[in-house]
Design a protein around this nucleic acid. Structure first.
Lengths: 215, 215
DNA sequence: GAGCGATTAAAACAAACGTTTGAATGGGCT
DNA sequence: AGCCCATTCAAACGTTTGTTTTAATCGCTC
């Protein structure tokens, strides 16, 4: 016999599913997260995913869109402002416009950290579905970032810039993915990881790398 | 009725399984690769995996050990030589000792490219099993790399160096993972990807980043 | 030829999976 | 009260999965 709770329908079911999905996709991956696990964590019924989102894949897309669209909106605004400025932007300014909102995003609410981890890993995820969703959402901002950096670094060929941007994105993605969790820590190392000092450190590294002279 | 081929037992079954596993784990991930898919590609029977390796997980470990142990041996020798030298190594020399064999590895045989992709992704793989195998095998060389860099960059605090090493490994991993395959290419970009010029480019970037002054 | 051990095969097992189905529930409206 | 629609529920469906089981095959040795 079916068990139906006293307060049958809850208006926040969709949100609970998104929150649980965000956490579990970040920690266990898309394939490593079953819908039964996910709906248990969300205190929802298994069929709720198909009802609200249509499929597991569509839920994944919704998880990404929920936060990545606003984040990219913010990044895009930052970059557009630099391009409209009176002076040519420096590479540090461009990178900062992209990196700062990204790393600061982590502290906005409890779920955001999981999201940052998920996005940090997305670029290299073995799952085609996940990687394709991510790339679709990232293409416009990637191209804008690339073109804005090209303005800042006119001495670099487009292909060299392309490679360097990938090195930079690799470094940033790894940083996001780590989220201050280290499995191997050498003696004498106590890595601090507040967003502001981490941002400063990664910008030092990336700016120097982008501006390096060719050998 | 069982179908038994004329030449019943083949001495290379184990190797074919390892090769197929390497390719499929690299392209589809550990979880995304089924044993049926894998044994079909290896032209072996489903039970062969359990017979020769004991489990899917043990096969994964064997795939990693087959190439990563010799690669790390080579990296380790390179680094040890630098530490035994008369002069303090430069950060570029240290990074080169680590990066060069890694990117050059790709060209040694047809399967090695898949392996490089697999390793490039391993650091951030959502699958715990895979990541743990990888980290177990990487811990000694990671610590050696860290300590050798500490010699090269005595002006950096150990914690700053730790972060920068992670930025560098993120950039390298992403490069390995990409393997010259790009989904988003801006107009006017024709990225060349031969190992030697790629190595030079990534070393320029990483060296500058490691040596950046703090802001 | 018989026995042995290594190797291979197909079938079987138990579990897990995303999706679908049909019924129940609750709130709003007439 | 009855109807409608949105939402939730448990069961069912068909498929897939890693592992195990049992028997057959082959080469070697005596």
């Amino acid at each position: 016999m079916k068990q139906i709770p006293a307060n049958f329908s809850r208006p926040d079911t969709k949100e609970r599913l998104l929150d649980a999905a965000e956490r579990l996709f970040a920690s266990d991956g898309f394939q490593g997260t079953s819908l039964r696990q996910l709906t248990a964590e969300a205190k929802a019924n298994l069929a709720a995913v198909n009802y609200h989102f249509g499929s597991k894949e569509a839920l994944l897309a919704a998880v990404f869109e929920r936060r990545l669209l606003p984040l990219n909106e913010l990044r895009s605004r930052n970059l557009q402002q630099l391009r409209l400025g009176a002076e040519r932007p420096t590479s540090r300014q461009v990178l900062q416009a992209f990196v700062e909102p990204t790393l600061a995003f982590r502290d906005r609410d409890p779920g955001a950290e999981a999201f940052v981890r998920l996005v940090g890993r997305a670029i290299a995820d073995p799952d085609d579905t996940l990687r394709k969703i991510f790339m679709r959402l990232m293409e416009p901002i990637f191209l804008l970032l690339y073109e804005t950096l090209a303005e800042a670094l006119p001495q670099l060929s487009r292909s060299d810039l392309f490679w360097r941007l990938h090195f930079a994105l690799g470094a940033l993605s790894h940083t996001m993915c780590l989220a201050g969790r280290f499995q191997i820590v050498p003696p004498g190392v106590t890595p601090a990881a507040d967003a502001a000092s981490l941002t400063s450190q990664v910008l030092d590294f990336l700016t120097a790398g982008m501006e390096a002279s060719c050998s």
